[in-house]
Design a protein around this nucleic acid. Structure first.
Lengths: 228, 228
DNA sequence: TAGACATTCGAACGAACGTTCGGTCAGCTC
DNA sequence: GAGCTGACCGAACGTTCGTTCGAATGTCTA
């Protein structure tokens, strides 16, 4: 619970037009920036973006209020950087993992495992990503939304590959969004002391999800007798 | 998208010590209060609790800023009333529906149907309930948390009934929380123009969830070969 | 008709907000 | 050692926040 997102490093973006000096100082700047971003993730996670003040971030990071503005042009940029780094990292790792994996069912398990592993190792950044989903506006909001669509698309493609390979019929949209619901909800309840860790959770949720999709798709016995 | 929560009426709580006058005025007060609560749901849904100001609520409800404080003692009480009414209504309706239904599988379908029907008919209040889950503190927060535990408990019991009746083995906790994830995530994506309505969605998600639970529990063919 | 009470509002309160200003200080180059 | 630059900060900016006050209405009872 203490600290997460232990890996925000060299976010790599326009920043405020830093120039490449010979050796060190660039690294110093990035490391300091990453340090503040980690604290900011924690505070945004605890109090929400609107509920957290720049003074809270100042206190948490040990830097003066004005000092923060040497690294970030606004509070909104802080949120943007956290979300962008978190999301691009997940997508990046997923792409790498999918490369060495061709079985449709296995690829979906890979998706789930990747998502859960990152989520549970970076709970705070993950909560900021999902909880402040529609907080960013304009260009910054559009950019995050684009990554989100990309992530959705990857998962949808995985499911449609499975559907084709098994000759099934089901709504890919509903399946993807159900899966997203399952895995994005975890941050609200996961307790490392009583719940399984990433690998075991991914296996269970994978079983669960795949059996749901595979068996609900081709009705063998008692299909939908829905009413209630 | 315009307005939801069309049924906040006579919330029935201590209030600020209203006394029962002969006939009408009590009703007037409640109706006016409910009107403000509906607008508040919409604004909290759009801008978040922290992001919404009392001036926003004043503008939306057409009542002066000071006038609001005749009906509510604080901004926090507004959130509390919205959450409490939403949650108790869901639980109430669920209990009624479960009374005329004994088959374990059917009871779980009833749970899903009840949740989805209310969710889709009251999207804004539902988002306020789930998105501001840990915003309330102290007594008010504890009271909402208690209802939430009750709701969780009901669902867990339904699943354990199913497990017992079918002689299965699976983690009730993981199943309940996966189901909650699926249904509580809906508010982030459901589009009434392209997605099914409550009954059809409940049927599909019910199929999906029940097959996942039933088949993943007793591994018949290719169970968990998890890795990734 | 007087008085009590519910309803509503304009105006203001002090506190907190995000951001900016002007400055100090260390380290570097010439 | 003068001049520049990046890192950082105290103090303040103007605005907005949740809430309160005092007064003005209308409505009902005695």
């Amino acid at each position: 619970m203490a600290l997460a997102t232990p890996d925000i490093r060299s976010v790599g973006l326009p920043l405020n037009g830093r120039k490449a000096k010979p050796d060190l100082p660039e690294k110093d700047f990035d490391r300091r920036m990453a340090m503040v971003l980690e604290h900011a993730s924690r505070i945004f996670c605890e109090k929400g973006y609107e509920g957290a003040s720049m003074r809270d971030l100042s206190r948490a990071s040990g830097m003066s209020l004005a000092g923060l503005y040497h690294y970030f042009e606004s509070k909104e940029e802080l949120l943007y950087l956290i979300q962008k780094h978190t999301f691009t990292t997940i997508v990046e790792r997923l792409r790498e993992r999918l490369e060495g994996c061709s079985d449709p069912e296995e690829r979906i398990r890979t998706f789930i495992h990747n998502h859960l592993e990152y989520s549970l190792a970076n709970k705070e950044a993950m909560k900021v990503l999902t909880h402040e989903d529609d907080t960013l506006k304009n260009e910054r909001g559009a950019e995050i939304a684009a990554i989100k669509r990309e992530y959705y698309r990857i998962c949808l493609d995985l499911l449609e590959d499975l559907r084709r390979s098994q000759g099934l019929q089901f709504s890919g949209r509903l399946a993807v969004l159900s899966l997203f619901g399952m895995v994005n909800w975890i941050y609200t309840w996961h307790n490392p002391r009583i719940d399984p860790h990433a690998v075991a959770m991914a296996a269970q949720m994978g079983d669960f999800f795949l059996h749901g999709v595979l068996y609900a798709a081709k009705p063998k016995r008692k299909a939908s007798k829905a009413r209630a």
